[in-house]
Design a protein around this nucleic acid. Structure first.
Length: 151
DNA sequence: GCCAACGTTGGC
DNA sequence: GCCAACGTTGGC
């Protein structure tokens, strides 16, 4: 069992959208490191925090879990689409997504609040210049955040 | 909208 | 394989 933090811009796809849909193909990842996490390291039932980024109140807003292992992201082959990648070979697709299932909403644990906890200094999203939209969390980080979310 | 910090691209 | 130019991310 692994733990993840996955960013999405709420104007693109929010925790409310996921609650409505039940699950979502985590589309549009076009970064090799993030892709490799999905392709090589994610397992069914891995848990992830849903993080709202690039918005007024960035932070953790919910929990979800992996419900389908990595498979080719169909948008990479859709000509004209924002996520179209003409260099991706259909016989050897470059980009994948996993399916994520809604688990629950949480209170907002804002980026500002996250920064106030010395225990979370090691969080990948707090490291200088880190822009990865998918990052792993240690079990300690996961548990610590869950406790904060419960209060 | 700004811009720092990265990742990617492509000429050489 | 170097590296300058360009594109993207994401907090502010």
């Amino acid at each position: 069992m692994k733990y993840w933090l996955m960013k999405s811009e709420p104007t693109d796809y929010s925790i409310d959208d996921l609650e409505q849909d039940g699950f979502i193909d985590w589309y549009g990842i076009r970064n090799y490191q993030a892709r490799n996490f999905m392709r090589d390291q994610m397992s069914i039932d891995d848990l992830a925090f849903f993080y709202h980024s690039n918005c007024k109140e960035p932070g953790i807003v919910g929990v979800m879990k992996v419900c389908k292992l990595a498979y080719p992201d169909k948008l990479q082959f859709q000509s004209g689409h924002k996520y179209h990648d003409p260099k991706s070979d259909p016989n050897n697709p470059r980009w994948v997504n996993v399916d994520m299932a809604f688990v629950k909403k949480t209170r907002l644990l804002s980026l500002n609040e996250i920064r106030t906890y010395p225990e979370l200094e090691t969080l990948k999203i707090l490291q200088r210049g880190n822009r990865l939209s998918i990052t792993p969390l240690s079990e300690f980080e996961w548990d610590f955040i869950n406790k904060k979310l419960a209060t």
